[in-house]
Amino acid sequence: MRAQGFISLARTTYGDEQAVRPMKILVPVKRVIDYNVKARVKSDQSGVDLANVKMSMNPFCEIAVEEAIRIKEKGGATEIVAVSIGPIQAQETIRTALAMGADRGLLIQTDADPEPLEVAKLLKAVALAEEPGLILMGKQAIDGDNNAVGQMLSALLDWPQATFASKIELDGAVVRVTREVDGGLQTLELDLPAVVTADLRLNEPRYASLPNIMKAKKKTIDIKTVDDFGGLAAGHLKVARVTEPPKRVAGVKVENAADLVAKLKTEAGVL
């Protein structure tokens, strides 16, 4: 019974051709500053100092990896491919995804820090080569805070999009996604293949177990160049400088609530 369920769920019809293919999930993951580390601006204003700073998988990408694994565990996918665009160290990020449960890795190695447009173009080339049924990714990378690549990838591929997902349900040739929006929640149904970006409350990512970390060492990570996927154009944006935001200075401690209200009224004038 179980095996049968697995096979039927893992089959997805694509577009008009009605061909039945195994469902692959592609998960783009980015290596970024660890979310617990406070970024420091370099004194020459050229950027943020990343020397000797702890780097980790972008938290939203971790959530995307976790969701892909849960879908696969329920029989909704046959393979999970983690892809990262970045320096050779981004292999560690891919390895983390493999230790969590992804099956295979792809590193597009570059020391240039590509802009969202270039990342989206490279990911499009990867998607056309891998033909996933679903691309699951983070809604935002916590370094650049762009919140753009998923939407751009969807537009370039002309695949449906659902961002800020807090719930994902695969159902044959469609996926239903509940999204966190400004006024509450919105649910959409998308034809597959589609691009979905993960928000914080989609799931709580697992920690990789020791045996899985060992197993992950044997999984394959292909290392390719940007030229294997169409190359990298010159950036469109020039960073003129990176500066510190204006500092807030700590104010005063008040004795009690009455004191607070008095100060808010007379000193701050906000009541």
Partner: peptide, 16 residues
């Protein structure tokens, strides 16, 4: 624009 959770401000020039 703010980057890194607002811990840095980036001044960008667009050639587009």
């Amino acid at each position: 624009r703010p980057i890194y959770a607002g811990n840095a401000l980036e001044t960008v020039n667009s050639a587009d």
